[in-house]
Simulated scan of single mutants.
Amino acid sequence: MTTYIPSLTLPASLFQHPAAAILLPVAAGTAVGFSTRPKENQNTYLALRQPPLRPPPQVFGPMWTLLYGLMGYAAYRAWNTGMGGFDAKKAQLALQGATLYTVQLGLNLVWMPLFFRFKRPIAATVDIVALTGTVGYLAYIWGQVDEVAGWCLAPYLAWLGFATYLSAGAGYLNNWDFNSKEVPKGTKGKDTKYVDEKP
């Protein structure tokens, strides 16, 4: 059971208005994506040994935009349903969900830097496992407040399950060491930055 922790929760105004609720995760996810250098991320992704069924890198941007939008819409619905009625239990669940939502958003936003920038596949996999568990619990909590809000998190939860498989699979297949994929500076005859990257 979680509790509402105001200091760990986004301001209420970000949940009350649909545009703010939807745009916040989309903008935050986009900002993190661009701050970790998308072209370099794509090259790292292509250079790593990957488990079967890995999608092409071009799939991730549109997929995450859709999932962030659904996540924000779920936040808006759950907050306004819970806080706008007379059911004290739903109001409490909406508040608890707001704290969980903030925590999961933070876990979501740190995965990309952990995986790509810092090349920490173990930390990234631990993060995404924690994220998946948090979102599963959030879907359960918010589903009790507003069924649509709970179901809006279902595609996100499914994608996180797949992303956990990809994160753990890439870590395992690369011996949990992504730094060895980089070519040392000054390597002769190598025009690209990564061992398996095609010139």
Rank of each mutant, 00 (worst) to 15 (best):
A168H: 12
D127P: 11
Q144W: 04
E147T: 15
V148L: 11
G169P: 07
A170Q: 09
V148H: 03
P155Y: 09
G171Q: 03
W142V: 15
N174T: 06
A168T: 13
N174A: 11
A149G: 02
W142T: 15
I141G: 01
Y172N: 07
Q144S: 11
L131H: 05
D146N: 10
G161Q: 08
D177A: 09
Q144M: 10
V148E: 11
A170S: 13
G143F: 14
W176C: 13
G171H: 01
A168Y: 14
A154I: 11
N179K: 15
V135M: 07
F178I: 12
D146L: 03
A168D: 13
F162Q: 06
G150D: 07
A154Y: 07
A168N: 10
L160R: 02
V129R: 06
Q144D: 13
C152W: 04
G171W: 04
D177F: 04
Y140A: 15
N179Y: 15
A170W: 00
I128D: 01
L157S: 05
V126G: 08
E147D: 14
A168E: 12
I141M: 14
E147G: 11
V135P: 00
I128Y: 05
L131Q: 02
L138R: 05
S167N: 02
G161T: 04
G171P: 04
E147M: 12
V148M: 12
A163G: 03
L153M: 12
G136R: 04
G150Q: 05
I141L: 07
G169M: 09
Y165F: 14
G150M: 01
D177R: 10
V148I: 15
I141Q: 09
W159V: 07
V145Y: 01
T134A: 14
W176F: 12
A158W: 11
S167Q: 02
A170H: 01
L160V: 09
L138S: 12
G143I: 11
W176E: 14
A163Q: 00
A170N: 05
N174P: 04
T164V: 12
A158K: 11
L131A: 02
T164H: 07
G143S: 12
L160S: 01
L131E: 02
A158Y: 08
V145E: 02
I128H: 06
L160M: 05
Y156L: 12
L173N: 05
